[in-house]
Amino acid sequence: MRLLINKIVLGLSTLSALIGLAFLGWILVTLFIKGLGSFHFTLFLNDLINGGLRNLIIGQFILAGIAAAIGIPLGMVAGIYIQEYGRGKYAEVIRNLSDIMMSAPSIVIGAFVYAIIVVPTGGTSGFAGAIALAIMMLPIVINTTDNMLSLVPRELREAGIALGASKYKVIIDIVIKAAKVGIMTGILLAFARIIGETAPLLFTSETSNYFSLDLTESFPSLTVSIYDLANEPEQSSRDLAWAASFILTVLVLTINLAGRFFTRNKKS
């Protein structure tokens, strides 16, 4: 009887694992077939207005890049505060809030940036989009930094202090170095996450059919354009959306894998 229940439960669990994997495999296969079917090298050379994706890919990178340039240093320093300086309640509150903020709906962050930047400046802009992404990235970086620093043994810090180094020196020279690999991985994963975001960009940067480096105007975004293209009736637009999705996915997965590879290499 016990053994029968055991068999049934294990069987069900294996079955559900297979079902789950089948779904996910289905998505990937679809993406590859449709995406590769509409993929062409010239997509990288033309802008959307000419049927290509060049401006969108570059635009998405710029948005995520600026967000990272803002979010990473702030997040790391904040994470250092929580783990190294914060004693007692305040640090704990910040840690919890940052944790909560990590799961805040991205569209709400879009609405927030819309209210504080888009409305006062009179229109959507690349700058607004980048800020929205930076806000999304901030808590992820804080969390990673906090976690990775907590893995550094206390003795290491004490040894540094015992040599007469000041606390911030110890943190920067020793603690961060010791946690470097983990933090880098976390940051890469955070970057992979925000570069695939659509919702916070919908009404902050919007998107543009043209190549642009002007952050004060609507800014080309790969993800927002995928949404627009996929909802158009013409087959050609949808095909382009699939090609764009394929590129986006490859991009995200590559960054993700790079992060993991990094950790594994350093560990061994």
């Binding site: 694992a17 994997l21 289905w26 998505i27 695939g196 975001e197 659509t198 995928i226 986006l248 894998l257």
Partner: peptide, 24 residues
């Protein structure tokens, strides 16, 4: 490997799931 595959799938942008869902 399956664990890694699952983690990677969790990283796929949600818009892709939406498109797949609508058309397939």
């Amino acid at each position: 490997p399956i664990g890694i595959a699952i983690e990677l799938l969790a990283a796929i942008p949600s818009i892709i799931f939406g498109m797949w869902g609508l058309y397939y």
